[in-house]
């Protein structure tokens, strides 16, 4: 416990990813699914950054660059997901993913 190593961060990243995976699969509410996806992104980002910090590399900042791209994608995804949620709500009056079971409407 007296030093923090790469494995510690990887474990936290894995836990965040697991929680995110669970939420995105199990939650009924569309927003709950979105939250899960964001948590997964965070787990991945944490892993990238910790690799970037600890692992031997010629270009150690590559991990940071990846994280920036992930954050960009996450922001874009969140915006589109908000639009989707509103659209779904407008069409079906619900954002419960269990009830959105028609392939076409």
């Amino acid at each position: 416990m007296d030093s923090v190593d790469l494995e510690h961060f990887l474990v936290i990243g894995a836990i965040l990813f697991g929680i995110g995976l669970y939420m995105s699969l199990a939650k009924r509410n569309f927003v709950g699914v979105l939250i899960g996806i964001e948590l997964m992104f965070n787990g991945v980002n944490l892993t990238f950054i910790s690799f970037s910090r600890f692992v031997e590399s010629a270009e150690p900042l590559n991990g940071h660059i990846f994280v920036i791209f992930v954050i960009t994608v996450a922001a874009a995804e969140a915006a589109v997901a908000l639009a989707l949620a509103v659209l779904l709500y407008r069409l079906r009056d619900t954002i419960n993913v269990d009830q959105i079971d028609l392939l076409k409407w």
Binding site: R28, N29, V86, Y89, T94, D98
Partner: peptide, 12 residues
């Protein structure tokens, strides 16, 4: 923005 959709965070 989805007021009638419920605010519950339950599992399916």
């Amino acid at each position: 923005l989805t007021p009638r959709a419920g605010r519950l965070n339950q599992e399916g």
